[in-house]
Amino acid sequence: MGEWTLESAWLAYCGAPPAPGGAGWNRDPWLGAALVAGLALAWGRAADRRALLAGWAVLALALVSPLCSLSVALFSARVGQHLVILLAAAPLLALGLPAPRREAGPGGIAAAAACFAVLLWIWHLPGPYSATFRSDLAYWVMHLSLLGATIWLWRGLLLAAATRPEAVLPAGLATAAQMGALGAFLTFAPRSIFPPHEYTTLAWGLTPLEDQQLGGLLMWVPGGLAFAGVALGALVVAMRRGRFAA
Rank of each mutant, 00 (worst) to 15 (best):
M179F: 14
L31P: 01
P20E: 11
A23G: 09
P98N: 06
G55E: 11
G183H: 05
A246Y: 13
V84C: 06
W25M: 15
W25G: 12
P170T: 09
A34S: 12
G2H: 07
A89R: 09
G216V: 01
W121C: 11
D211R: 05
E3Q: 14
W10E: 14
G105M: 07
L95D: 05
R191D: 13
R164C: 04
A111V: 02
V58C: 04
D28K: 00
A171H: 11
T175R: 06
S8P: 00
E3P: 00
G24C: 10
W25H: 14
W220F: 14
A60P: 06
A40D: 05
A104G: 09
S130F: 01
A40V: 05
A176N: 02
T201L: 04
S69A: 15
F133T: 12
G172D: 07
A9W: 06
W30R: 14
G127N: 00
G38P: 09
Q81T: 11
G80D: 09
L225A: 14
T200I: 09
V141N: 00
G55R: 02
P208Q: 07
L6N: 02
G55S: 07
S65W: 10
P195I: 05
G22I: 03
V168S: 05
A33F: 10
L137M: 12
P20S: 09
T200N: 00
M142L: 13
V168P: 02
L218R: 04
S65T: 10
V236N: 04
A111T: 06
L119A: 14
Y129Q: 05
A160M: 08
H82F: 11
G127V: 15
A131W: 15
L61Y: 14
D48R: 13
S69R: 15
N26M: 06
A60R: 01
Q81R: 13
G32K: 00
V72D: 02
F244P: 03
T207M: 08
A228V: 12
H82M: 09
R134F: 08
G229H: 11
A245P: 00
A171I: 11
L52W: 08
V168C: 03
W152D: 04
V230N: 04
P100V: 06
L225E: 00
A162V: 12
W30H: 12
G2S: 10
A77H: 11
S76T: 10
R45H: 12
P208N: 07
L52H: 10
S135Y: 12
A238H: 08
A9D: 14
L11W: 11
A238S: 10
L52T: 11
L202W: 12
